[in-house]
Design a protein around this nucleic acid. Structure first.
Lengths: 343, 343
DNA sequence: AACGAAACCGCAAACGATTGCATTGAAAAA
DNA sequence: TTTTTCAATGCAATCGTTTGCGGTTTCGTT
């Protein structure tokens, strides 16, 4: 018994037929007698034959593998996306190759290269914070290579993308704070070069305007890193520096919201009586902290699943990229908890 | 210009040499004139030649890809492990194929099969809660196939594994609670078929014994799912049912610890004055909740990195599995925060 | 008996790269 | 001039599978 897997040739030798016959018999091609098919399958079973996926990939120029490029694995939202991706990919018979860029453009580019070397059938991308030039993506798109962007989507022609309705999520959250009687609402924004950040800012601003309030640029503060400690520092500074003390924070992510909460507590401010807080993403810990954190939930798993379905449809030609006009937008949901309710 | 990548043949045709010459020139084999090498490399550059990894895999029966089988991606600890894995794999030139089992044995087995079909060079595994029979692993091990287990490791011969010192972590945590004057310490345990759970129970028990306290089986409660809501229910039941009300909880995971905390708060018990709590894993939210949660930190990223380094060493024959006797054990660290300190 | 058509099956090329074993040609040695 | 030697390159098999094309049987039909 050879080491490793049995091959078609092994079956062929055992039965004194050609490799072609074995191949066709296993695939139930016409032109092979039932008798032969039976025997081939029997021997295949006996030898635990499993087709060599690599040889298949080479022959068909298809690997049944998709690549995922993500900024950070250790990030609740992205982990739910990965989970959604993996689920759909598995059920449709595809493997998932994963790389994280750690927000580095260089790694993004080199990841794409190795993926192309490996005959990856398509790529799912959420690009890095460093990425401002999208040439490495548009080149592939123009070659007809299947790519689907999710969450962080570029504004380039013919890009297929799946995102959440950041605008509406931010709008709803801000509006909720206003309804609760908060009037000096600070927005802790994400990196302003990302479209998702811009959309959230826009939602925040529109909510203010439609409620007859003014927009003060000083009340929009960028938290570029996105950790709780960063936002904690920023918030405690703000609490002192702003002419009118803020009475609410709408943060572009939950970590920042927690930072703000900690800073407020440190200042002796009561939440939600004196300060209201709403986050974004609905991380697991939202329900675990005190007071529980209101947050805009992003359907991460659904986003991963949807993006994967679209990518695989493109790969399998069930979906013509040209028929797609705009990005697919998934709805968010404002989950109201204690941190923002005082009525 | 052809669609897709240029091949060695394209270069050969362009220069009127054979494919073998091109191959050798690119690899700087001796026996190729410097002049030819120069020209070959020049054309390769011009055509943006990149070797086809699939063809290489077929030829060499090596894919430079490793497989990762994990119970759940959406799990802070595992996500840090993945991050560690991906980092090392990337820097050593390997791809990572990821599958999650969702704690299902069937998926674990089918994942392994597709990985073998794909000529994966080795596998990193943390098995599912359903897995009690390890035949599908030991078969591979006996064939000399490189496998490294992490976190959840099986007790089978010749298994290479990396784990944290669950025993000591649990011992230290329990001991800390005792030092703080807590006397009726409940242990919220994990699934008892997992070795990590057993080790933590053992650490808990030994700490009690060495402090001259008795072990009461009623004070060891299994939280099999591991969510905060599960443990919240269990804890509030316990608070009423046990003859002596517990004054501390050592949980086998942070989610369970939070559940216990919430249940205690609901009962009006003050933490840490009346009840002390320590968790396990040091999830991100530990510092974000109030009171901040003491926890035993597991070096997830380091574990992933270590396991990957060992796996790749085995693959590259730099490491002989037979020279390894026991599992590699990484140290935990007790991070003391407010939830357990009353002195 | 002879012919044609199914029915079955094998040959060989192809996917892209590597590599042991020739082969070529020219310079060096005789 | 002839032989030897060696550097430079090509041939062809190989990895495991698929597939177009062609080749044998076998059988029914007249």
């Amino acid at each position: 018994m050879k080491i490793g897997q049995a091959t078609i040739k092994d079956i062929a030798i055992e039965l004194n037929v050609s490799a072609s016959t074995v191949s066709r018999a296993l695939k139930n091609y016409p032109g092979i007698s039932d008798e032969t098919k039976r025997k081939v399958k029997e021997v295949a079973e006996k030898l635990h034959y499993r087709p060599n996926a690599i040889a298949l990939s080479l022959r068909k120029s298809r690997s049944f593998t998709i690549g995922v490029i993500i900024p950070e694995v250790v990030h609740f939202f992205f982990s739910t996306v990965i989970s959604g991706i993996e689920g759909v990919a598995f059920s449709r018979g595809y493997n998932v190759i994963l790389t994280q860029t750690n927000e580095k453009l260089a790694r993004e580019i080199s990841s794409i290269e190795t993926m192309l070397d490996n005959q990856i059938d398509g790529i799912l991308v959420s690009f890095s914070k460093e990425t401002t030039d999208f040439e490495h993506f548009s080149k592939l798109i123009n070659q007809g290579y299947p790519i689907v962007f999710f969450d962080r989507v570029p504004e380039i022609p013919n890009a297929i993308s799946v995102m959440v309705d950041d605008y509406k999520g931010a709008y709803t959250a801000t509006n909720h704070l206003i309804t609760q009687g908060f009037r000096n609402i600070v927005h802790l924004a994400g990196p302003k070069n990302l479209k998702i950040s811009q959309e959230r800012i826009r939602g925040y601003q529109d909510a203010l305007i439609e409620n007859g309030m003014k927009i003060d640029p000083d009340y929009i503060v960028e938290c570029s890193i996105g950790t709780d400690s960063e936002s904690q520092k920023i918030t405690s500074k703000i609490l002192k520096s702003l002419p009118v003390r803020p009475d609410a924070f709408f943060a572009s992510n939950d970590m920042a919201a927690v930072g703000a909460m900690l800073a407020c507590k440190a200042e002796g401010l009561r939440i939600p009586e004196e300060v209201g807080i709403v986050g974004f993403s609905n991380w697991q810990f939202c329900t675990m902290i005190d007071p529980s954190l209101s947050s805009v939930s992003q359907p991460g798993s659904k986003m991963g699943a949807k993006a994967t379905d679209m990518l695989l449809d493109m790969i399998e030609k069930k979906l013509d990229p040209n028929t797609i006009t705009g990005p697919v937008v998934l709805e968010t949901e404002l989950l109201i908890r204690k941190s923002s309710v005082r009525l």
